[in-house]
Amino acid sequence: MPSLPDVMTPDAAQLAQAAGGEGRAPLETGSPEHDLFTGLTRLGDTTLILGHRVSEWCGLAPVLEEDIALANMALDLIGQTQLWLGLAGEVEGRGRDADALAFRRDGWEFHNLLLVERPNGDFGRTLMRQFLFDAYHLPLLKALEGSTNPRIAEIAAKAGKEVAYHVERSADLVIRLGDGTDESHARMQSSLDALWGYTGEAFIGDAVDARLGEAGVMPAPESLRSDWDRTVNAVLAEATLERPASDFAHKGGKQGRHSEHLGHLLTSMQWLQRSYPDATW
């Protein structure tokens, strides 16, 4: 496989797609297969980018037990990514496996939520980001268990068991740190305020979501909001944290428009595979 072109090449996006294509045409935009591929990359890219972010803590967390816990949670997320992106590659039918999708796409081809590419910040901010995501991730997976696509349903059933432990842990820690010392409380409130504008994107559907929802393949994003609200309100109340009033939501991640942070993350995550394609050990 040839190495990917420089991003300044005018038709880089097309070249990058063709590089993994095995001569087959890309899926047609708006077709059920393209919608399914897009929906699966939204799931897999979100778990991939969050998994990578969380793994950045490995060796750096405040105490050994938390270091191990973060690494294990990252491992769950990367495992789920292999299932989602593996299936996405099968649906696309152009010879790209989970590794090819993870390591050989550029930023504009990633469809993760903006929330998960936010930098880690301090330990409290990482846990707040995790909780805000977990509170959405679990009801999402529960809904996906009822998908009309049996492959999606079985991955969701598997992942849901793991994520139930994630949300318990992140909720515990948000409560302990929020309702902790003055210092930890202030940091958790400022984390919540800083991340809040990135939470709404998960509940805003586009045309792809609408078609997937209609076909019963994936739930309409709007339908997951009330569960999330209930969990977040209960935990924030217990954590003595104040829910921000604004409903303003940054959007674009699901459509491939990202913050600068994703590019920095990808340079680190993809470096080896970009420099030494197909390297093995």
């Binding site: 139930a164 318990e168 909720a171 969990t231 209960a234």
Partner: peptide, 14 residues
């Protein structure tokens, strides 16, 4: 005793 992600009981347990 598997986690069910139902946080009401969880919060009580805290």
């Amino acid at each position: 005793t598997a986690a069910d992600g139902v946080l009401a009981g969880r919060i009580a347990r805290l």
